[in-house]
Design a binder for these strands. Structure first.
Length: 490
DNA sequence: ATGTTC
């Protein structure tokens, strides 16, 4: 669907602080209302961007329950908006590749350390160079790991566990990755030869675009007790990785969309936008997509963990001691592009139902007491990792009870683009970006010719505003603000 | 996001 410049008077009714309802009569065929989490000052931009139209389109899909949701970092996406959450009944509902996105299991991981910014400030340029040289990045980048056919199949089955078995990461890491770094019942036989070929050489590579690897300092603590549980304190150095499933996820999504176009016709699904291509969750096509999506998701977890291993090697070599004595253990790893079967109570009912939750540019935000959380975080809720732009900040939040009730245990995933890549390049001069950031004490190295121009801070909403909205809505709470010190971009 | 048009 073409993005329209004007929208037919979207009515967004404020129903609670930071919560806005798009009425079911906004568009014919909506099965549920829409709901957008945002601060009042964001509403004009959201309306002018026409993304409520995509929220309404998703609401027309069969079996959707509750509401078609959007987070404050919403922007225009393929069919479903980026920053969208939609949950479907397993019997009457659908599953859609457009509800997950091209970069299946794009996500973020965070390593802590026992270093302080004061100690390592002067090392940053050399450390960034060393990371840049060790972690392959950029479009089409290939790593040192060349997977045999059998090994790739094991990665698609096991995800991050395979990386641990190879001695490239620690077995304790798995406890701190969502789904323990691997979804069960993935089916590698469904991954095409072409997708496999792309995957073989890309394990442990960063990619490009908004993906990054960043040395950060914990700049501010908002919730000392939760920060302590997460092992975070002011002045501490941490390393954040934002990456996904690389060419594999893209290939899988592309091929699945073609299958789903046929499936939508076969099952006579009346789609208001072709890009909403989907199949009933329990149909063969729906189940096949779910299984092949899991393969790509598992690859992405393996990819981020492999890069964590490279980061540890880099620091260990630089400081001449093992990573363990630098305290570089895993805080957490989140996935923000995925479909997952989870249990929620709908409306005021106490009865829980299994739903297929699509999070496309939205982060799981499970609250205190969730049995799937590791002991260490059980009482405080899960860490929620929010990557910001190059110049400002990233955030660590914690999941809340409210998120279960209002957003299917979900929150925002980042700052959210406000400027197209083209517009960002037009607005900038080549060569100036890295220098300007350096003047502000942020060392950046990039592989791509235009990546830094495309990724200027001004191309994004201020992550501060996005986080304030989800915190205000109560669907996650601020724990720590992280400030960039040195960044590797693709 | 993506061997940025197999």
């Amino acid at each position: 669907m073409k993005k329209e410049t004007r929208m037919p008077e979207a009515k967004l009714e404020q129903i609670a602080p930071y919560r806005w309802r798009l009425s079911q009569d906004f568009q014919p065929g909506m099965n549920v209302p829409g709901e957008i989490i945002a601060s009042e000052s964001m509403i004009p931009h959201i309306l002018s961007d026409n993304t409520p139209k995509q929220v309404a389109n998703v609401a027309t899909l069969p079996g959707i329950v509750g509401a078609s949701l959007a987070m404050p970092d919403i922007h225009w996406g393929y069919g479903f908006p980026i920053g969208g959450v939609a949950a479907f009944d397993l019997d009457e509902g659908i599953i859609s590749p457009g509800g997950v996105g091209y970069d299946i299991n794009c996500g973020v991981s965070l390593l802590r350390s026992n270093l302080t910014s004061r100690e390592i400030r002067s090392d940053i340029p050399k450390l960034v160079d060393a990371l840049f040289n060790r972690v392959p990045c950029g479009v089409g980048s290939e790593g040192k790991i060349k997977l045999s056919g059998n090994d790739l199949t094991r990665v698609l089955e096991k995800g991050a566990r395979w990386v641990v078995e190879q001695g490239l990461a620690d077995k304790d890491d798995l406890e701190f990755i969502e789904e323990n770094g691997g979804m069960t019942d993935s089916d590698p036989s469904l991954v095409s030869d072409r997708a496999r070929e792309r995957a073989r050489k890309q394990l442990g590579t960063l990619g490009s675009g908004n993906h990054f690897l960043e040395i950060q300092v914990v700049e501010k603590i908002f919730q000392p007790e939760i920060a302590e549980a997460f092992g975070l304190y002011k002045g501490q150095v941490v390393v954040m990785i934002h990456s996904g499933s690389r060419g594999l996820g893209h290939q899988v999504c592309d091929e699945s969309l073609k299958v789903m176009q046929g499936a939508a016709r076969k099952y006579q699904l009346d789609l208001v936008d072709r890009q909403l291509a989907c199949a009933p969750f329990k149909s063969p096509e729906g189940q096949d997509y779910f299984s092949v999506m899991k393969c790509a998701a598992n690859y992405a977890w393996a990819n981020r963990l492999a890069m964590s291993g490279l980061v540890r090697q880099t620091f260990a070599e630089y400081y001449g001691k093992p990573w363990q004595s630098l305290g570089m253990s895993m805080v957490w790893d989140v996935c923000h592009n995925i479909a997952s079967v989870e249990e929620f109570a709908i409306d005021s009912s106490s009865h829980k139902r299994k739903l297929c939750v699509h999070r496309k540019g939205a982060t799981r935000a499970f609250g205190p007491g969730d049995s799937s959380l590791p002991e260490r975080y059980r009482n405080v809720g899960q860490p929620v990792l929010i990557p910001g732009d190059m110049g400002r900040a990233s955030y660590v939040l914690a999941g809340t009870e409210t998120a279960y009730k209002t957003t299917f245990g979900s929150t925002c995933h980042g700052a959210g683009r406000v400027m197209s890549r083209k517009a960002a390049v037009r607005a900038t001069q080549k060569g100036n970006i890295a220098r300007k950031l350096a003047e502000r004490g942020i060392i950046v190295r990039s592989r791509g010719k235009w990546t830094l121009n495309e990724e200027i801070p001004e191309a994004y909403k201020d992550v501060e505003d996005v986080v304030a909205a989800v915190h205000g809505a109560g669907i996650s709470q601020k724990v720590a603000r992280l400030k960039p010190m040195g960044t590797v971009k693709g």
